[in-house]
């Protein structure tokens, strides 16, 4: 039995689902099934076949775990792993410093999916290069809270002044962005994160450093971004050449800068 395949060759039907009630139970199950993913909203794991990936043999379903759905922005912004994007958008709306998070969580995906996708799932889907929520959290310098290997939430210290999230889509929405940029202004400097460009969203520290504490005009940031894009390891997708992402990213940077200035 030790050699049991770690993947299911029978699609969704072949997944053994474990349903812990507490974080401790979840961690214990993970100890027993190290390859079993945690499943919250389900929207990532359920689409594994469409990504050409096999489903796991075991999955740990978190939706019954108590204590992971807290959401508060008083003083510090604290969000539990099971909070949905729709919920994040609702609790952060109107808080200027958290606006990047509000925009990322209210523009990503679709209205129905935003009611399913969770914060924890968004952070755990490490292969998700087109995440909106991750660049937003990166520019806000969010701290990920864990118990064992389980992400239980994030904490954001509310010291920033303003932030925004700009995403470029070809259609009116409902799709992964072609490039996205999250910017937060903290003191004289900017924190800038990008999504949908490289294999993983990340802080664009090269651009932050180049921008320094000079004038934060859209034109200047666009030009600086243009001088740096060639160093990005941009991903291509059907119909979207990597070069196209590099071409449009400075424009998205400029649009985000214009909104935060």
């Amino acid at each position: 039995m030790g050699a049991t395949a770690a993947v299911s060759d029978r699609g969704v039907f072949g997944v053994e689902v474990h349903r812990p009630r507490t974080v401790d139970e979840a961690l214990h199950l993970r100890g027993q099934h190290p390859d079993a993913p945690y499943v919250a909203g389900g929207t990532w794991v359920m689409r594994a076949p469409q990504r050409g990936e096999a489903l796991p043999a075991h999955a740990i379903l978190l939706n019954g775990v108590a204590g992971l759905d807290h959401a508060s922005i008083d003083g510090t912004c604290e969000l539990g792993a099971l909070v949905t994007l729709a919920h994040i958008a609702a609790v952060t709306r109107g808080a200027g410093d958290l606006q990047a998070l509000t925009e990322a969580s209210s523009l990503a995906a679709t209205p129905a999916l935003r009611r399913m996708i969770t914060l924890g799932g968004s952070l755990a889907a490490d292969a998700f290069w087109a995440s909106d929520i991750v660049p937003a959290l990166l520019c806000l310098d969010a701290e990920i809270v864990r118990q064992g290997d389980l992400i239980t939430g994030v904490r954001i210290s509310r010291t920033g002044k303003a932030s925004c999230h700009e995403r470029l889509t070809w259609r009116s929405g409902g799709e992964y962005s072609v490039a996205s940029v999250s910017i937060a202004r903290a003191g004289d400097s900017l924190r800038i994160a990008i999504g949908s460009v490289e294999a993983c969203p990340r802080r664009w520290t090269e651009l932050e450093d180049a921008a320094g504490s000079g004038p934060m005009t859209p034109e200047r940031l666009r030009d600086l971004a243009r001088s740096l894009v060639d160093d990005l390891d941009a991903v291509s997708a059907p119909g979207i050449p990597a070069d196209y992402r590099r071409t449009v990213l400075p424009e998205v940077v400029a649009r985000a800068t214009a909104r935060i200035a």
């Binding site: 259609r171 929405g173 409902g174 992964y176 059907p238």
Partner: peptide, 24 residues
């Protein structure tokens, strides 16, 4: 857009990468 890979398969696998017009 539909593109065909060198192995003859169609690269667009679903409505994620095959973009149909939406209301907007």
């Amino acid at each position: 857009e539909i593109s065909i890979a060198p192995d003859g398969s169609i690269e667009q696998k679903g409505f994620g990468d095959y973009r149909l017009p939406l209301a907007g």
